[in-house]
Write a protein that binds this DNA or RNA. Structure first.
Length: 731
DNA sequence: AGAACTATGTTTTTT
DNA sequence: ACATAGTTCT
């Protein structure tokens, strides 16, 4: 009997860490991991081990002799990418250094650097982030005289949505205006003008935003045969996690990358689709067999993460969804406590309750790293952060601002970006505004004077400034001169920029510069790993590093409590999970309209609740501050109200009367009774069977349709799916 | 008069 | 963090 597939010589050659124990997999996972050639679609529920399956497949392929660097591991959210690569590195030891993978954009960046000459941009393009794009829009708005209309002009967010029309949304400008913002119709011409200017601006300055990157990739792979050949031949296997988070163009790129061999395995869960606002479309999962007619479909339906009471509740959350999903989850984990719903008097009481519970659980032995607090929006945790700080409890907040999005980092990076691209108007604007007596208008004037020059830095040195800020400009010019000395490493350039920026920095952020200084030091460390400034800038634009608020101390071994937006918690799991702010008017978001948006909010709650292994707390304040600073009462989130109260326990001195449920809701919320089918494919308890991997065993029970539970002599109890199991009946 | 500075109010989620 | 409105400076 083959215990491990890695006891052969391939394992040592490729540096697999220890043995890969395939017997730990269930039947469907095993089928996915050991699948030979061709496309595979794995539809997997929450907690079904989908990332593990994907990573095992990678290790399995390496064990079969596939070169690690010819496997492409992709996913579409940063946190999930981190988790995936971490798991991969545990399995493959030194081979992991040769694995190519991460977020789609980070991988793009790597491929661009390797094959960039095909894109026709030469080396002179800069990748810009969302903040840059918004900055450009603002510049355009003011130069067109549209800024004055701000009072009635739509927010920058709406403009961004409209501008990204092509790639992220399948709707036209007119559709968007008609559907979502009918009152903005009169601005449609302005939108068009802004969009045209934005496109021109990017072309003129050699800038690419995220969407351009995708479009260019797609163009490259469809229009340039030799480039496609060169890129695709490098990857023998493509493994994609969180496939439901792809948008149309990304799904198409995945198909094109597999050109010639179709060795693609995608893993996704349509019930966990929470990124439609950036163009992701979970119907891509359903379209996959159309793209790859040979595709084999495998479902992972057993949940290994959560206890039954948690699973019953999460199943009830998703059961109310209008669109029916492709699978039902079950678990064999017994025991566990019912999820707790906690109404608190107000936000402070909610924060106190959560902090108290965490403190208690910690004292009882749950490590802080095994607990997490999740919420809909970044600012929902403010009260809790205050509470935790006042108690001296350390935590790590995820989601919200990235390191490179904070003002002081942007300030400093501006200098470096000028060095890489002296025509970067956005960065110039930022630098000029730091000078005393220079505001938006003056900066604009200076920019107009220097940006047409062959050497903007020299042009700035020659610029005749009025006496009020002449000395400030002189200092800037001197600093730029120092930074431009030849043969400086990126670190030395950073230090030169810092020497000039430091006094300004301390003045601007007089109240909290010690805290911000740590971020700057972090960038300093980061830049030390680069010998080429442009690579550093591209990497940070595409894949901004996380703010690390950690103060490295002795108890770092134990880890820290995580506070996270639900979006940033995707793909992770903890023993104890608190979901806070589950009040009406907070979850779903206040302006959510019924329909697709409403359903996405529901899936978001589903994602949050399915992060929990053992304990789940759902809390909400019964009193909240309205925008006009008045208190008003709120009830629990409509998503919670739909759930049968029998599935949870209410905590608190003033329990709410259980809301009456319609018989229909009552029925849907209850765990589904298992259907028993008469045709059981000849398996009955007590029967002796033989399995190619697990060896001999005895049929224990028939837990569901097309499933058998078998007690194996060597590997214990397992539930097998008859669609995949190659069982031999002995007697 | 025009530009810079200051106080104030509002914030979805993110590759 | 940013936009805007109101106030102060040149």
């Amino acid at each position: 009997m083959q215990q491990s597939l890695f006891s052969d010589q391939h394992a040592d050659k490729n540096g697999l860490a220890g043995e890969l124990d395939l017997t730990a997999l269930n039947e469907a996972q095993y089928a996915a991991v050991t699948h030979g050639q061709g496309p595979v679609l794995v539809i997997a529920g929450a907690g079904s081990g989908k990332t593990r399956t994907l990573v095992y497949r990678m290790a399995y392929l390496i064990g079969q002799g596939v070169a690690p660097e010819s496997i492409l591991l992709l996913t579409f959210t940063r946190r999930a990418a981190q988790e995936m690569l971490w798991r991969a590195s545990r399995l493959t030891d030194q081979a992991c250094r040769r694995i190519i993978g991460g977020t789609f954009h980070a991988t793009s960046n790597m491929l661009l650097r390797r094959h960039g000459h095909h894109l026709g941009f030469g080396s002179g393009f800069t990748i810009i982030d969302r903040g840059d794009a918004e900055g450009i829009i603002n510049l355009i708005k003011s130069s067109l005289g549209l800024a004055g209309k701000n009072k009635r002009f739509p927010s920058k967010r709406i403009i961004m949505n409209l501008l990204s029309g092509q790639v992220n949304k399948n709707r036209s400008l007119e559709d968007l205006v008609r559907e979502d913002h009918a009152h903005l119709a009169e601005f449609i011409d302005d939108f068009r003008t802004i969009r045209r200017h934005y496109t021109e601006f990017k072309l003129e300055h050699g800038l690419m935003d995220y969407d351009d990157l995708l479009v260019n990739w797609h163009r490259l792979l469809t229009e340039c045969g030799s480039a496609r050949e060169e890129i695709c031949s490098g990857f023998a296997h493509i493994l994609v996690d969180e496939y439901q988070d792809t948008n149309l163009i990304q799904a198409e790129i995945v198909r094109l990358l597999a050109h010639g061999h179709d060795n693609v395995m995608v893993v996704g869960d349509d019930a966990q689709s929470i990124y439609s606002f950036r163009g992701a479309d979970f119907h891509n999962i359903m379209r996959f067999p159309g793209q790859f007619p040979q595709a084999r479909i495998i479902k992972l339906e057993e949940n290994y993460r959560s206890t039954q009471p948690i699973l019953s509740l999460t199943n009830a959350i998703i059961a109310s969804a209008t669109e029916k999903f492709t699978k039902t989850l079950f678990t064999r984990t017994d025991g566990g406590t019912r999820p707790r719903v906690v109404p608190a008097r107000n936000e402070s009481a909610e924060a106190r309750y959560v902090a108290d519970r965490i403190d208690q659980l910690h004292q009882d032995g749950t490590p802080l790293a095994e607990m997490a607090v999740l919420f809909r929006s970044g600012f929902h945790s403010f009260k809790l952060e205050l509470e935790l700080n006042s108690r001296g409890m350390a935590f790590e907040k995820r989601g919200g601002l990235k390191l490179t999005e904070s003002a002081h980092i942007k300030d400093l990076l501006s200098f470096l970006r000028i060095l890489a691209n002296p025509w970067d108007n956005l960065s110039w604007n930022r630098i000029l505004l730091q000078l005393d007596r220079v505001g938006q208008k003056t900066a604009h004037k200076v920019l107009a004077a220097i940006s047409e020059s062959d050497d903007p830095v020299a042009a700035l040195a020659a610029y005749k400034a009025p006496p009020s800020w002449r000395s400030g400009l002189a200092a800037l010019n001197e600093a730029l001169g120092r930074m431009r000395q030849p043969d400086l490493t990126p670190s030395q350039q950073f230090d030169a920029a810092m020497a000039y920026y430091e006094p300004i920095f301390e003045k601007i952020y007089y109240d909290d510069h010690p805290k911000r200084r740590k971020d700057l030091e972090q960038v300093r460390t980061l830049i030390g790993g680069y010998s080429d400034l442009q690579s550093f800038l591209d990497d940070t634009a595409l894949d901004p590093p996380e703010t690390d608020t950690a103060t490295l101390s002795g108890d770092d071994e134990e880890g820290r409590l995580i506070l996270s937006t639900i979006h940033s918690a995707k793909g992770l799991e903890w023993d104890v999970v608190f979901v806070i702010g589950l009040a009406e008017g907070r979850f779903p978001q206040p302006r959510t309209v019924p329909g697709e948006q409403w359903e996405e909010e529901r899936r978001l709650l589903y994602v949050a609740a399915t992060r929990a292994r053992k304990q789940l707390y759902l809390t909400y304040p019964r009193q909240m501050m309205t925008p006009d600073r008045k208190l008003h009462h709120t009830g629990m989130s409509p998503f919670l109200r739909e759930i049968s109260p029998g599935l949870y326990e209410i905590i608190g001195n003033t329990p709410m009367p259980a809301p009456a449920l319609s018989p229909d809701q009552e029925h849907r919320a209850r765990p589904r009774p298992q259907k028993t089918r008469s045709a059981r494919l000849d398996f009955t308890p007590g029967m002796q069977v033989l399995h190619p991997l697990f060896g001999p065993g005895t049929v224990k029970s028939i837990p569901g349709p097309r499933r058998v539970e078998i007690r194996f002599d060597r590997h214990g109890d397992k539930i097998l799916h008859l669609d995949y199991a190659k069982l031999e009946i002995i007697q």
